[in-house]
């Protein structure tokens, strides 16, 4: 029981990861796929932040009388990953706009029927 409760943040991560990945695979709507991709990426952000926690550690801001800090490095890494994620989402949305312009639809199966791509 302790194993499950003590690691609840990781269970949240795994749940989000699978929800995101499943959405990407199962949804035919291109926007919904992007949303799934975002959920998947966010779960990884949570994973990193969870790992950075040091038990009993304070927020990594220098203050008097604090001996133990959480590890700030994962936060910095994730800041970079968030930027990458934003760029990916922006590019994906731009592509969807252009797909809509030239196909008139953003449903995967309808695009497939039109010219067997995707």
């Amino acid at each position: 029981m302790d194993f499950f409760v003590g690691h609840y943040n990781y269970w949240v991560v795994i749940f989000l990861m699978l929800v995101g990945l499943y959405t990407v695979i199962s949804r035919g709507n291109l926007i919904k796929k992007i949303i799934g991709l975002n959920i998947f990426q966010v779960s990884v952000f949570f994973l990193y932040i969870s790992m950075g926690t040091v038990e009993g550690g304070a927020a990594p801001i220098i203050a008097e009388g604090v001996k133990l800090y959480s590890n700030p490095l994962p936060h910095v890494l994730i800041l970079t990953a968030i930027v990458v994620g934003v760029a990916t989402t922006a590019l994906a949305l731009a592509l969807v706009v252009r797909i809509k312009e030239s196909y008139g639809t953003i449903e995967e199966d309808e695009i497939h029927d039109l010219d067997h791509s995707l």
């Binding site: 990407v24 291109l30 991709l37 990916t88 590019l91 994906a92 592509l95 797909i99 030239s102 995707l118």
Partner: peptide, 9 residues
């Protein structure tokens, strides 16, 4: 466009 989208995902 669709190939780029597929590659992106």
């Amino acid at each position: 466009l669709t190939s780029a989208y597929q590659y992106l995902i």
